[in-house]
Nucleic acid binder design. Structure first.
Lengths: 340, 340
DNA sequence: GACTGGCACTCATTACAGTCGAGTGCCAGG
DNA sequence: CCTGGCACTCGACTGTAATGAGTGCCAGTC
């Protein structure tokens, strides 16, 4: 049960070496590359214990040891210090993100930056609509029975949606509708709008009623239901690094999962605060991702998260480095968004 | 030189069998599976000629033959009839596309549909801005020195961009700006706007001048420069079908190319009309895609293309089927957009 | 009691030889 | 011009042996 300090040191060394070389690590190589101060034989005994406890395993007899998911877990929880970023990395982050002109721009730059720095697949969620407030609503007539509804959120997100009206509507009615929805909704959090929208319909004058009813449906559908959460993706090519060893030979399940926005949102979008989460292999609830690890965090101005971001890679990843990078990027993005 | 009819039939049979089985096809198997009416020996002679002419090759002595890129080219140009879609496929297309509520929605549904039907990677370009006209421009004040510029095109595309003004601007100036840009620009094709924007600056009253200058810069940047072309992608997981045989073992270059919007636009976005283009392996100008084939076409109401769409897969693909599907989907999308 | 050196053992990997068979090229004959 | 026949090629597969990295265990040492 109790693992003494040396056994933990051995585990740490195994993880580090395996991550670096991608090859099972043996007792001899271990004592050579790390200053453990004991002989290979002793290390072997420690390894036997670690294996019994389920932290490492042998791919086959007469091969070195490889960390298990459980071993990685212990490693991240107790054995690794977060690596400070190199000045070069800091500079890269700043250089990459200044000059972003737009929320879209920020998100795209961020996701590419993250993929590049971690050399893994990066995922960035747009600031969640549910946690944004309405800054402005615009109604643009497309034809007499069609409006384009454009919502601008305080986070810079802009969502649009076509509204098919039940009957033709003259221009001055559109003006009235526009004024009304803005009066009632601007400034409120999107998660709190449903009752307001309801009230809007009930209080509106008779001649506005039908149009307002349709409009309210679209409003609720588009803005409140989680449906319109968005994500950006980059770095899928990084999945092919490390030959076909990672992901047990097939990228298929990973690629499938990455394409499902819903899945990805569940994975990185549930962060309520800016704490970092690490999911290792098996711990992942999504079957397709059982061979992968995910490092994610929330980002936002202050401690409350506007959205999530993270990276996905093989369980054999540089956790300290990745965690540090993900955190740093999230912090920068948070600051950037706070300026708006 | 001259390939007689039977030699062409042999080539066709080789392509069909190889596409179906993914294995080099020999003379004996060929005569068994196709009614060629001659003996294997004769087929072998024909094969020798076809090989000499560069249409097929042997992976190694004592293996069957495999089509070359040149062989596929001949096949698509002269040997294949476009397969009519099955009723099931037609139904799938309709079912998939009705109920689309929005341009975004149409594009996303289309790209997924295309990936699913062809079982390959699908790419859909949003209707090109350059070929759209301005339907409406909206200016929303974010702060005294910041405006959100929202442009709605007649194709349903909505683009937004933040404008940082050089100095604070009162609300009535914003109203004036809004009226002016709409008066001058609504209805004109985006590719023709540059001189109009220029005129806008020159003709505007002194108190509007500085704001209008900045605004015009953003307008030109966002709307006219090709930069804001967009694409949607789906079906990357299909790249992993056919083991690692296709794409000579590494998906990396393909995935890299797929992530570069610029590259993809060049590939499928150059269609000026709704004719179908087929690029086979080598013919591709993008080095990363030398191992892949691309079937693309323009879509739009009528013969002029609003944008391009297509699929990417291994050179060993079912060309007749893929071509038919791509065309059919493009036609449906064109009709759908014409309704708006 | 903890560590170490030594040793026998396991087993993936590599190399090599041999067999098998699909598929070819060529040729003589119809 | 087509066909059947035949020798040939060469990859795929099988079996055997040698190699060596790495282990587990044990007896001895501090």
């Amino acid at each position: 049960m109790g693992l003494d300090d040396r056994k933990l040191a051995v585990l740490r060394a195994i993880v580090e070496d395996y991550v670096a070389t991608q090859e099972p690590v043996g007792s001899k190589a271990l004592v050579e590359r790390h200053q453990l101060g004991v002989s290979p034989a002793t290390v072997r005994n420690d390894m036997a214990v670690l294996e019994e406890e389920g932290y490492i395993r042998q791919p086959h007899t007469s091969a070195g040891r490889v960390p298990t998911d459980r071993g990685y877990r212990l490693f991240v929880d107790r054995l690794s210090r977060v690596k400070p970023l190199s000045p070069a990395e800091r500079r890269a982050i700043e250089r990459f993100l200044v000059g972003a002109v737009d929320l879209d721009d920020v998100v795209h730059r961020t996701v590419r930056l993250l993929a590049q720095l971690t050399r893994q697949v990066a995922v960035v969620q747009y600031p969640s609509l549910a946690r944004s407030s309405v800054r402005h609503l615009e109604l643009v007539p497309i034809s007499t029975t069609r409006l384009m509804l454009v919502m601008i959120a305080d986070t810079g997100r802009v969502e649009q949606r076509l509204v098919e009206l039940p009957a033709p509507v003259p221009a001055d009615v559109v003006t009235d509708l526009r004024r009304l929805v803005n009066e009632k909704l601007v400034g409120s959090r999107l998660s709190e709008t449903p009752p307001l929208v309801q009230a809007l319909v009930e209080e509106s004058a008779a001649h506005l009623r039908p149009a307002m009813t349709t409009l309210s449906t679209v409003l609720l559908e588009t803005l409140v239901e989680r449906h319109e959460e968005r994500i950006a993706l980059a770095g899928t090519a990084n999945l092919t690094r490390g030959g076909l060893l990672d992901f047990q030979g097939s990228l298929r399940p990973i690629l499938e999962a990455l394409e499902e926005e819903v899945v990805m949102l569940k994975l990185i979008g549930e962060a309520e605060s800016t704490t970092t989460r690490v999911l290792i292999g098996d711990e992942n609830e999504i079957d397709n991702l059982r061979a992968a690890s995910v490092v994610s965090t929330g980002y936002g101005p202050g401690a409350a998260a506007l959205g999530g971001l993270g990276v996905l890679g093989p369980t054999r990843m540089d956790y300290p480095g990745t965690i540090a990078t993900v955190r740093a990027v999230a912090r920068y993005v948070g600051e950037l968004l706070a300026q708006n």
